[in-house]
Amino acid sequence: MISVADLLVDNRLPSNYFASDVYVRGTLELGLLENRRGDRLLALPDALMKSIISGLNQETGQATKYVLRNCGLWWGKNFYARFCEELSDYYQKGVAELSMIEFVKALQECWRTHGWGVLALNTDHQMKGFLVIEIKNSPFTLHPIQASQPSGALETGVLQAFFSQLTGRDLTCVQISCESLGADCNRFVLGLENRLESVESLVQEGQPHSAIMQMLTQ
């Protein structure tokens, strides 16, 4: 028989750690917005995002997306470490012991609560070795970097670093649809570098994401 007392051994049941009304707090009299662990949070004005891109465009020209991607890689690496630390503190077990759905749900809720949009994992092409991340309402792709090209260089870097660390493989990430170009969401395809070589040029040609995925998985 199932014993309820056994289910309640440590008397706490993990729930939605990133629920916004408990996750975001602050020591506002000191001007600090914080998460529930006391780490500092920042509200990032849209005008700042816009000025970073236009500043980089002015100073580096074509290099903007590489700079942003690089920033994303750094951010992603640190974000992964912090995310895992928070989760394992909360669940009181290592991240490797969490089920994938718990991990993915936490990532989605984390994304949402920080105001980075709604993230979904599309595993339709997992048998072929590709993972597609779909993000709606991203604040990072609002401002174009280059005309008629996807503008999620920062997120591309974050996702690449995050999932590379999670899977222990050297993954590449390419954005294949962008809200700023009228798509319903931003799509990022993750996979091994040699299998994604052709994608960059397909994106530049303006191929739709469905065609790109079809060519990749043929």
Partner: peptide, 15 residues
Amino acid sequence: ESEEEITSETLVSLF
């Protein structure tokens, strides 16, 4: 189908 797989598989095995 994909969600079902998420519960049983780890993402590591995707690549």
